[in-house]
Structures are given as structure tokens and as C-alpha cells.
Design a protein around this nucleic acid. Structure first.
Lengths: 220, 220
DNA sequence: AGTCAAGGTTACAAATATGAAACTTGATTT
DNA sequence: AAATCAAGTTTCATATTTGTAACCTTGACT
């Protein structure tokens, strides 16, 4: 269940948001004490933060910018006027989205789900079912066991993951792997696919990459 | 100048959008023939596409899903009713955002700039000033020249980039690079920093990583 | 100037990644 | 059934990556 932190001083709105989010299947966490908002933002470890831009005695800009130095958790700004949005963007607070009050509940929920969906694949950690794919560490992790991928294997897995469930042609993979000018044996791709499959098999996913003869490969 | 493709059958709206975008500093490209929209979307190579969900004789869902197989270019859906938005998302067309008609010009421009900004850092491509950092390809690119980074160099650069401008301790870097249990010579970090610096110097950024003695390193 | 600490650099050996080649498998065509 | 084709696998030589060890540089403090 995704935790969503609500930082909004107007009680009526705060409660309304809490109910709306709870009904939508989220776990709302409403902040009521603004003395140490900054600390709470860092400690709660929420999946998303709804932050009112106008809080009593708190500078929203400084707050978010400060928070951004420590965390990439997505933040949706709650703003009162359209003109305020201009400020948000021009000051490049680091907000991921913004919503103007009074907001339509449907729109709010849609924006939340859009931002959450986006944040899942941002950064260097991606997910393939219960497998973590870290392009920086260059590894796949499942149930604590880790398989180190080589550069080629990463390029292949990334492309297959980007188009998960779809057929990716051998040509597309070749293009992603090698520059057009450098000639490589067409079989080199088979070799690299084979090696990647071997590592997936070690993670008990021997059938993750399916061959579609004459068409390409599919990451199931 | 960013190219924005407009796919909207209502002429008045189309023209209005063109003018608005041109005034905002974009290069609008309006489509008027819908027989081969799909081809045009692929060929124009736009930075962003505004796509009306209801086109005559064209199924917006199929169109976008088909396009998504070939391109990651951001698409903003233009929808008439709020109920339509539900469809857009629930069918997971692959749209990056949506706007309901009639739309407020300010909001439209803000959404466009937000999506464009987002698309720049989406996926595995990150930016350090004018340097592209691709963790999948494992390289830094600047002015067309590319430096391939090794796994260790990527881990170091990623951590420094995440905390850009801040001091990152040698300990933090060591933790990111090696498991606690495996013993590595403390000097190995110096060696790896040195190698990374060498590659940055090749990109004419010899001073990118600054040493703070007794404290750590800073990516300027 | 001399010493020391904190990093930087270079050279090298061991480990790892990679493409090519040869061979295997399994499906489709003739 | 034989031939053909697409793709998988194994083995090998070459290239790259990596940690260590030895040595170098810089700047602070005597």
C-alpha cells in the first residue's frame, strides 16, 4: 500500500484529502504539526507527498529545495491560484506536478497515480516483477540473490524491459548494442541473449525471455 | 527550438494552438491529413505530440499504442470530457499527460514545459550540465565525443551526481562501491577516482571533481 | 628546509567481458 | 526423409576492468 503524506494546514481540506486517498486504496499520513515538517518529510518515507505551497510560518520553496537534496520522493504541489503555478515552475522548486485548488477529486487521483507510476521507473532502479534492475550497480536482484550483468546484457534487458510484453526485433537489439559502422557477427546477439538467459535462469526465471522465430524476443 | 506536433481535427483549435505555441517559442507542426497520421508521427521526429483523442476515422488508442512501440516521444492527450480521461488512463494508452478542452493557455503551456522537462531526464539518461550520462550505455557524452565508463566509475559518478555540489565522503563512496565484508585497499578508491577524472578530462572537464581533503569529493 | 598526512599516479597481474568460429538443436520447406 | 534455416551453445583468443603495491605530489606544520 502506497503511503501518501499530506501537508496542508486547512483542516477541512486535509480531512477531505485523507478520506479520498483512503478510499482510493492509499495510506494517507496527514501532518498537523508544522514546526518540524522538514524532519517528518524525511522520516516518514512516503511514496508521494502532497505539499501545500502556502503554509503558516513555512517557506515552501526552501522546504522543498532542502528536501530535494536528500530525497527523490515525488512531490505534488497544492496551489491556490494559477499565477502561483508560474512561481512554482519558474523557481523550479523541484516539484513533480501541481494541482490548483479547488481540485476535482478525479483529476487529483489521476495525477497521483500518474506521478507514482512515473516515479517507479525514474532513477536507476527499475522493477521487472519482483526483480530489481539497477543499471548503476549493473545487476538484477531477486530474493536477495544477485546476478551481475555485463554492459551488453544490460542494454538487452533494458530494451526488452522498455517494451515488455512486446516483440523486440533482433535488428532493434543490434542497433542498441552496436554502432552501425562497426561490423559484428550477427551471431554475437544470440551469444549475448544466451548469456543473459543463463543469469535469469540463476534467478529462477529461465523462461523470462521468449524467442519468436523470425520476429524477435519478448520479455514476458 | 522544440518541435511540437499538433494532431487536432478542429481547424479553429488547431490554428489557435499553433499561434500559442509559436508565441511561446516552440515550433508547431500541425497535421491536416489523417490518412497517414501514424507515419507522420514517426517521421516528423517531434519533441512532443499533442494528440486529440477523438479524430475522424482514427482510433486514438490503437494509434498511440502502436506509436509507443516505436518511440518514447512524450504525448499529451487532448480530451473533451473528464470521463474521457478515465478511459485514457485506464486503457493505459501510454500518454504522458492529458488536458481537457476547453483548456486554459497558461495551464497548457505549463504542462508542455513540465512534460518536456521530464522527458529530458526520463529513463536512464541523466544530465550533468551539457554532459549526457547514460547508465545503460555506460557512458558520458559531450559535444559528440563519448567516454565509456566502467562499472565502478559509474557508481562513483552517480553518487556524486545525486549529491551534486555537496561533499560526498570517501566512506560513502566506499560503501556504494564495495560490500562491507569484502576487504579492499583504501587506496582503490583513489585509483578509481583518478581514472574517472581522466575520462572527464578527455571531455574537457578536468576540474569537475574537486577534492576536499579530510572531507571527501564534490562534483561541481 | 624537513617531516608527515592525505591523496594521486603508474605499472602490473588476475579476473572478467567480448566477438568469432564451430557445432548443435529444432522447426519448416522441399 | 533430406535439406534448409534460424537460433542456441561452447570454446577460445583478445581486450577491458580491477585491486594491489610501490612511488609521487601537495600542503600544513615544525
Amino acid at each position: 500500500m502506497k503511503k501518501i503524506m499530506i501537508i496542508e494546514d486547512e483542516k477541512a481540506l486535509r480531512d477531505e484529502l485523507s478520506v479520498l486517498l483512503k478510499n482510493a486504496g492509499y495510506e494517507p499520513i496527514a501532518v498537523t504539526n508544522y514546526d518540524n515538517v522538514s524532519e517528518q518529510m524525511k522520516n516518514v518515507n512516503a511514496d508521494l507527498i502532497l505539499l501545500d505551497i502556502n503554509l503558516p510560518n513555512v517557506n515552501g520553496e526552501t522546504l522543498l529545495q532542502d528536501f530535494r537534496k536528500q530525497s527523490g520522493t515525488p512531490v505534488i504541489m497544492l496551489t491556490s491560484r494559477i499565477t502561483e503555478i508560474d512561481e512554482v515552475l519558474s523557481m523550479s522548486y523541484g516539484a513533480d506536478d501541481y494541482i490548483t485548488k479547488p481540485y476535482n477529486p478525479t483529476i487529483l487521483l489521476l495525477r497521483i497515480s500518474a506521478v507514482l507510476k512515473r516515479s517507479e521507473k525514474v532513477g536507476t532502479m527499475q522493477k521487472y516483477n519482483d526483480v530489481e534492475f539497477s543499471t548503476v550497480k549493473g545487476s538484477l536482484i531477486r530474493n536477495g540473490s544477485e546476478q551481475i550483468l555485463t554492459k551488453n546484457e544490460m542494454i538487452i534487458f533494458q530494451l526488452l524491459l522498455d517494451r515488455r510484453g512486446e516483440i523486440v526485433t533482433r535488428d532493434d537489439l543490434m542497433t542498441a548494442l552496436w554502432d552501425n559502422d562497426e561490423f559484428v557477427n550477427d551471431n554475437a546477439l544470440s551469444v549475448n541473449i544466451s548469456r543473459l538467459r543463463g543469469k535469469l535462469a540463476e534467478l529462477r526465471l529461465p523462461k523470462a525471455i521468449e524467442t519468436r522465430k523470425k520476429q524477435g524476443y519478448v520479455l514476458k
